[in-house]
Simulated scan of single mutants.
Amino acid sequence: MASIIDDLKMHYKFGGIAQRLIYWNVACFLGSLFFYDFSVGTFNFPNWIALSSEPSVFMTKPWTLLTYAFFHDGFSHIFFNMIVLNFSSTLFLTFFSQKQLLGLYILSSIFAGIAFVSGYYFLNFSASIVGASAAIMAVLVATTTYSPLMNVRLLLIGNVKLWHITLVILVIDLMQIRIENTGGHIAHLAGAFFGFIFIKLLQNGTDLSKIVSTIIDFFVNLFRKSPSTPFKKVHKNYKKPVANPTSKIVTKDKTQQQIDEILDKISRSGYDCLTKEEKEFLFKAGK
């Protein structure tokens, strides 16, 4: 059991933002079990988590534009979403950075949430939504927009073009928009549209993910302790010793060198390629 927990910790620490998004979604789902109504077999999310289409509720709880994208209303809901998130984010990171993935996930969630609220307001409907589907659609469509002809190998089917997969998912959303979960499908399509716009702007030199990166960096630096500057004594007659010109080679610490080699291995082949000894060494070094 301890080794499983250690593996999970290492996956979270070194797996990148895609793995962390999955962890955050799973953690929120486990926490949402407190809102499960066993008498009717459904989740009853409070309006400070789920995104409500009611303007009076939404305007007083604007943070729900983001919180709804980390909660799910059933095991099958989160299971399918996390599979597609892992698939689409892996493809996305082939071309783009970790910060761009996080920025796209957050911004597309907000955009899709606004589209859902606006759509239901004009349709005179009232409901609330949860789920990461809109943000996942944004990641998938963004990757497809950038590289539509990428070959993807599917089980029992073989090689298909990425745009074929994306098109099928979008058509299913369009077909079901008037049948069931209208608000969810509006959010999905809005997320897909945002993913398309995100890449087009990026290709023109505008990286929207920098908005998120700048805000996160601001708060990280705000709460980070600035290193204290040690008091320096000045002696007038002190002569600075001349450095030895022959010793310009810096020897890397053996432990640090081994850590760097393991991290290089992770970046090339992923965390799962490590041996048990390498995992244990990395875990101990990270303490």
Rank of each mutant, 00 (worst) to 15 (best):
A2I: 15
K9T: 14
G15E: 10
Y23W: 12
W24E: 07
N25S: 15
G31V: 14
Y36E: 10
F38V: 14
F43T: 07
N44Q: 15
P46E: 12
A50Q: 13
M59L: 15
F70Y: 10
H72Y: 09
H72M: 06
D73R: 09
G74Y: 09
S76R: 08
H77W: 05
N86Y: 13
T90M: 08
F92M: 06
F95L: 08
F96Y: 12
Q98P: 05
K99D: 11
I106R: 00
I110L: 05
G113M: 04
I114P: 00
F116T: 01
G119D: 01
Y120P: 00
Y120Q: 06
Y121E: 02
N124Y: 06
I136V: 15
I136A: 03
A138C: 08
A142L: 07
T145Q: 11
V152G: 07
R153V: 14
R153Q: 09
L154Y: 03
L155N: 07
L156P: 00
I157R: 01
I157G: 02
V171A: 08
I177E: 05
E180C: 06
G183F: 06
G184D: 05
A187S: 11
L189A: 03
F194S: 02
I199V: 09
T206K: 08
L208N: 01
D217I: 02
F219C: 04
N221Y: 04
F223S: 06
P227G: 03
P230G: 04
F231A: 10
T246P: 00
K252Q: 12
T255S: 13
T255L: 14
Q256K: 09
D260E: 15
I262W: 04
D264S: 12
I266V: 14
A285Q: 13
